[in-house]
Nucleic acid binder design. Structure first.
Length: 879
DNA sequence: TAAAGCACGC
DNA sequence: GACGTACGTGCTTTAA
C-alpha cells in the first residue's frame, strides 16, 4: 500500500475555523471556537483518509526570510485577534493528544515547511494531500500532490489536481507564481502590477506562459496602457514572484519518517475534550454514532419503503411530498417521495416513481385527492418527470401564508409547531446547514424525516382548513391561490427565451464604456481607487475634492444617487459617477447576472415566483428576479431586447393595468370624485393636480402634474410626508400640506383612511377585496414610529393587496380561456400589474382582445378597469 | 458569512 | 416634536 501523507497549514485552517464559527467560550471562559473547528476537521480527515503520515505546520514568529527581500511583506495586516492567538497553545496540546506531529521553523512560513516535506514525500512516491485556505499552495499541485482549499467556512473544500487547477484557474501549478507576480496579493501586501487583476494576468499567461518570457517580449503585448503598466512595474513583478515562491528546500530538521501517524490514545483525547467542554465530540472517539437526544424525544413512526408502487397504497385522499435539499426546484436533485394516508405511511425512492405507470396514473387522476406542501413546487418537479399532476386539493404552504403572511417561516416543521404538532424535526437538525448541509449517512434517518413531513401535511390539513373557514378565507385558497399555483408552475416551467448573443453584445459594449468612464473618473479624482466601494469613494469626494457633505450613513459618507444628484454641477466627476453606477448595475445584475442563469440547452430562463412571501399578497420573483428588469431609462430598457419568443414567427405581448391601485382606491373608498375621474377616463395625475391646486385643466402646468403624480404615488405606496418630501425635494411641512389638500379634495378617500385605521385598531388586521389578511399589532404601539408605520400600512395594504388579488384572478381566468379555446399562446411572466405572453402570429388579434377582456372583467368594481396591450418582436418592442 | 450600501422594478 | 419612514431581489465591498 502506498503511503499517504496529509499536510495541514495550521495557521490558515485555524484562522478559517475562527471566523467560520461563532465566538464561543467554554465554562472556564476560554475561547475555543477555532480549536473546535480544527478538531472536527482533523477527526473527519482521520476517518475519511486513514493517512499513514500526517503533519501540521505552523508559521513561526513575525518576520521571515521574505522580509529581507521586501520589508512590507504582509504589511498592513491587522494584528491577530487575541481571541484567536490565545487558542494556538491549546491547538498544539490538542495535536499532542491526537498524537499528530506539528512543526514550525524560525524565519520560515508554514508554506515552506509543507513545500519542503511534500517534495521529499513525492520523491519517495507518497500520495500527498495538502490542506489549507491559502491559494499560494496551489503551486505545489502535481500528479502526486493534490491541494484542498477551504471554500466557505472550513467544511466545504475544493480539491485541486493538475486537471481541476487548469479547469478552475486556467493556469498550471507553475504558473500560479506568475499569476501572483502579476496580480499581486492584497492579503499579503504583495504589489504585483497595479491595474492587472486576475483576468488580465490569465490572458497574459496564456500568451506568454511565464513572467520572464512576457518581459522578453513586451513589445508583443496588446494595449498601450497595459504595456506601460508592465514596463513601469517590472521590478515589482519579479519581486512579487520571488515572494510567493514557496521554498521547497527549507532547512527543516524533520523528515517524512517523523510524520508517521500511528493513532491516538482514546483516553488522552477524551480527557482533553472533556477539559475543553467538547462534549458533542466525545462519542466520535470510540466510534459511537452521533446519536441525538432530539431524535429520541420524537414519538416513533413506522413506515414502509416501497420498491414498486401498487394501487393499494393509495386511498384517494393522500398526503404527498417530494423532498429536495435546496429551493431551486427547476434543477435540484430529488431526494425521495412519500405518501401518507389513513391506511399507512410510505417512503418511495425517486427511481421507483420515475418508472411506475401506477404512480403516474394516480398522479394524473384528478379524482384522487392530494394534500401537499407547495403545490407549485410539486407541479414543477413532477413536470420534470413528464407527469402532469392533477387533483391537488390542499396546500399547507399557501394555507399557512393566508392564515398569517407575517410569519417568516412557512416550512412544514415551522407550521407544525405553530399548530402544536411537535412530532417532527427541523430540516436543519436533520440535514445540517450552510456548507455542511447534506443527507445524513444513515439512510433511514432522512427517509423517516420525509415521511414525518408528509405525515404532518396529512395531520394539519383539517386544522388549517378549519382556521381558514373561521376567517372566511377558504375560497381565497381554493378558488384563487391554489389554482394560481398551477398556472405559475406552468409559467415557470415554460420559461422565457433569451437571445444570448444579444445579451453578450450588450455586455461587451457596457464593458468598453465602463473602462473609459473608470479612467476618466481616476483622472478627475487624481488617483485610482475602487469606484464600487462607497467607503473609498466617500473620502475622495468629500475630503480630497472637498464637495459638501449632504448625508451621512452609519459607516461614513453617503454616496447614494440622490446625494450625487445634489452635487451635480459642482464637479465634473459627479456625472461620470452617476453614469458609471448605472452602467455597472446593468452589467453586473442584468447582463452577467442573467447570463449566469440561462439554461444552456434551451437558452431559457426559469424564474421562481414566490407565492407565499409578501405581506400584501403580491408575488415576488427570484433566481433571477424578472420583475425588476429595467424600463425607465432607455439604456437599461434595451435589456428587454434580449427577451424573445421561444418560437419562430411568434411575438411577445405585454398587457398592463392602467392605474389599477388608484381605481381600487376609488372603489373601496367609494369616493365619488375619484370614481367620476375614472369613469370619464381622465388622465388621473392631471385630474389630481386640478383638484389639489384648484385650477382648470388647461392651467395645469407640468410641474403641478409632476407633484400630483408624486402624491398619487405616495397614496398607492403608503409613504409618509417625509417620503413625499424626499421624492419631490421639498420640505416636510410642504409635503404635509400637499397631503392634506389632497385629502380635502377627495373626502371619500379621507373618510376611508380614517375608517381603515379604526378598523385595524378594532380587529388587529385589515383585509383586501378577496379577504386576504394582514395583521398590524403595532397599530396600538406607543412608539410613534411603529404606530405611524402600521397606520400607513393599514391604509395601503387593502389597496395594493386588492390589486394583487385582481391580477391573480385574471391570470387564472386567462389560463382557463387559453386552454379551453386551445390557443398556443402562453403566459410567461407577471410583473405586479402586467402580464407578459408569447403568441403565434396568427393568434395575435384574438389574444390581444382576449387578454384585455379577461383582465378588465376579472372583477366588477364601481369604476372600470382599463388595460393597455402592446406586442412586438421582443419584450422591448411590446411597449 | 453577514451586513452595509447601492440600484433596479412596481 | 422626535422618531426614520412602501415592497421586494441582487450585486459588490467589507469586516468578522
Amino acid at each position: 500500500m502506498t503511503n499517504k501523507l496529509i499536510l495541514i497549514d495550521g495557521n490558515s485552517i485555524a484562522y478559517r475555523a475562527f471566523f467560520a464559527l461563532p465566538l464561543l467560550n467554554n465554562d472556564k471562559g476560554v475561547y475555543t471556537n477555532a480549536v473546535y473547528g480544527f478538531t472536527t476537521m482533523l477527526l473527519r480527515i482521520l476517518e475519511e483518509e486513514q493517512p499513514s503520515h500526517m503533519l501540521v505546520a505552523f508559521d513561526a514568529g513575525k518576520t521571515t526570510f521574505r522580509h529581507e527581500t521586501y520589508k512590507d511583506y504582509k504589511g498592513g495586516r491587522e494584528k491577530t485577534a487575541s481571541e484567536l492567538s490565545e487558542q494556538f497553545p491549546i491547538l498544539r496540546e490538542l495535536l499532542d493528544a491526537l498524537a499528530i506531529k506539528h512543526y514550525q521553523l524560525t524565519n520560515y512560513e508554514a508554506d515552506d515547511i509543507i513545500g519542503t516535506i511534500a517534495k521529499q514525500a513525492k520523491d519517495k512516491d507518497f500520495e500527498v494531500k495538502v490542506i489549507s485556505g491559502d491559494k499560494d499552495l496551489l503551486q505545489l499541485v502535481s500528479e502526486k500532490v493534490d491541494v484542498r482549499l477551504t471554500k466557505k467556512g472550513i467544511s466545504e473544500v475544493m480539491t485541486y489536481t493538475p486537471e481541476t487547477l487548469k479547469e478552475d484557474m486556467e493556469v498550471t501549478a507553475e504558473q500560479i507564481l506568475d499569476l501572483k507576480a502579476l496580480m499581486g496579493d492584497k492579503s499579503d501586501n504583495i504589489p504585483g502590477v497595479p491595474g492587472v487583476g486576475q483576468k488580465t494576468a490569465v490572458k497574459l499567461l496564456k500568451q506568454f506562459e511565464t513572467v520572464e518570457n512576457l518581459y522578453d517580449h513586451l513589445d508583443e503585448v496588446s494595449g498601450k496602457k497595459l504595456k506601460e503598466k508592465l514596463e513601469n512595474n517590472k521590478e515589482e513583478a519579479f519581486m512579487s514572484k520571488q515572494l510567493v515562491t514557496i521554498n521547497q528546500d527549507s532547512p527543516i530538521e524533520i523528515t517524512t519518517d517523523d510524520t508517521k501517524y500511528q493513532g491516538y490514545q482514546e483516553k488522552n483525547v477524551k480527557d482533553f475534550f472533556k477539559e475543553l467542554g467538547f462534549n458533542s465530540l466525545l462519542n466520535r472517539i470510540d466510534g459511537e454514532e452521533e446519536e441525538t437526544e432530539e431524535v429520541q424525544a420524537l414519538e416513533e413512526i413506522e413506515f414502509q419503503v416501497i420498491s414498486e408502487v401498487t394501487e393499494d397504497i393509495f386511498t384517494g385522499i393522500d398526503a404527498f411530498e417530494i423532498e429536495i435539499l435546496n429551493e431551486s426546484y427547476h434543477t435540484e436533485k430529488m431526494i425521495g417521495a412519500s405518501i401518507v394516508n389513513e391506511k399507512g405511511k410510505y417512503f418511495i425512492p425517486i427511481n421507483v416513481i420515475e418508472e411506475s405507470e401506477v404512480f403516474k396514473k394516480w398522479a394524473e387522476n384528478d379524482q384522487q385527492k392530494k394534500y401537499v406542501f407547495d403545490a407549485k413546487k410539486i407541479t414543477v418537479l413532477l413536470n420534470r418527470l413528464s407527469i402532469a399532476i392533477k387533483g391537488i386539493s390542499f396546500d399547507i404552504l399557501l394555507a399557512s401564508y393566508l392564515i398569517n403572511p407575517s410569519e417568516n417561516n412557512h416550512d412544514v416543521p415551522a407550521i407544525s409547531h405553530r399548530f402544536n404538532e411537535k412530532n417532527i424535526l427541523f430540516d436543519e437538525e436533520v440535514y445540517g446547514k450552510g456548507a455542511k448541509k447534506g443527507l445524513p449517512t444513515e439512510e433511514k434517518k432522512w427517509q423517516e424525516h420525509i415521511v414525518r413531513k408528509t405525515n404532518m401535511i396529512y395531520q394539519l390539513k383539517g386544522q388549517m382548513e378549519q382556521a381558514l373557514e373561521e376567517n372566511k378565507q377558504l375560497s381565497l385558497l381554493m378558488d384563487l391561490e391554489l389554482p394560481l399555483a398551477l398556472v405559475l408552475g406552468e409559467m415557470e416551467a415554460t420559461g422565457v427565451k433569451v437571445d444570448v448573443q444579444r445579451l453578450k453584445d450588450m455586455g461587451e459594449e457596457l464593458k468598453e464604456r465602463l473602462d473609459t468612464l473608470e479612467k476618466e473618473i481616476y483622472e478627475l479624482a487624481g488617483e485610482t481607487f475602487n469606484i464600487n466601494s462607497p467607503k473609498q469613494l466617500g473620502p475622495i469626494l468629500f475630503e480630497k475634492l472637498e464637495l459638501p457633505v449632504v448625508k451621512k450613513t452609519k459607516t461614513g459618507y453617503s454616496t447614494a444617487a440622490d446625494v450625487l444628484e445634489q452635487l451635480q454641477g459642482k464637479h465634473a466627476i459627479i456625472d461620470k459617477l452617476l453614469l458609471y453606477r448605472q452602467l455597472k448595475k446593468l452589467d453586473s445584475t442584468y447582463v452577467a447576472g442573467l447570463l449566469k442563469v440561462i439554461h444552456k440547452d434551451s437558452s431559457k430562463i426559469h424564474t421562481r415566483f414566490n407565492q407565499a412571501l409578501t405581506q400584501t399578497g403580491r408575488l415576488s420573483s427570484i433566481d433571477p428576479n424578472l420583475q425588476n428588469i429595467p424600463i425607465r431609462i432607455e439604456e437599461g430598457r434595451k435589456i428587454r431586447q434580449a427577451f424573445v419568443p421561444s418560437k419562430k414567427g411568434w411575438k411577445m405581448i405585454a398587457a398592463d393595468y392602467s392605474q389599477i391601485e388608484l381605481r381600487v382606491l376609488a372603489h373601496i373608498a367609494n369616493d365619488e370624485k375619484l370614481q367620476a375621474a375614472f369613469k370619464e377616463d381622465k388622465d388621473i395625475h392631471t385630474q389630481t393636480a386640478m383638484d389639489v391646486f384648484h385650477v382648470k385643466e388647461e392651467d395645469v402646468t407640468s410641474n403641478m402634474r409632476r407633484q400630483a403624480k408624486a402624491v398619487n404615488f405616495g397614496i398607492v405606496y403608503g409613504i409618509s410626508d417625509y417620503g413625499l418630501s424626499q421624492s419631490l425635494g421639498i420640505t416636510r411641512k410642504e409635503a404635509k400640506t400637499f397631503i392634506s389638500r389632497y385629502l380635502d379634495s377627495y373626502p371619500g378617500v379621507q373618510e376611508y383612511m380614517k375608517e381603515i385605521v379604526q378598523e385595524a385598531k378594532q380587529n388587529g388586521y385589515v383585509t383586501t377585496i378577496m379577504n386576504r389578511r394582514r395583521y398590524l399589532p403595532e397599530i396600538t404601539s406607543r412608539n410613534f414610529n411603529q404606530r405611524s408605520f402600521a397606520e400607513r400600512t393599514a391604509m395601503n395594504t387593502p389597496i395594493q393587496g386588492s390589486a394583487a388579488d385582481i391580477i391573480k384572478l385574471a391570470m387564472i381566468e386567462l389560463d382557463h380561456q387559453l386552454k379551453k379555446e386551445k390557443y398556443q399562446a402562453t403566459l410567461l411572466l407577471q410583473v405586479h400589474d402586467e402580464l407578459i405572453l408569447e403568441v403565434p402570429e396568427e393568434e395575435l388579434a384574438d389574444i390581444s382582445k382576449l387578454v384585455v377582456d379577461v383582465m378588465e372583467r376579472a372583477i366588477e368594481l364601481s369604476v372600470p378597469l382599463k388595460v393597455d396591450v402592446e406586442y412586438g418582436e421582443t419584450w422591448y418592442d411590446a411597449k
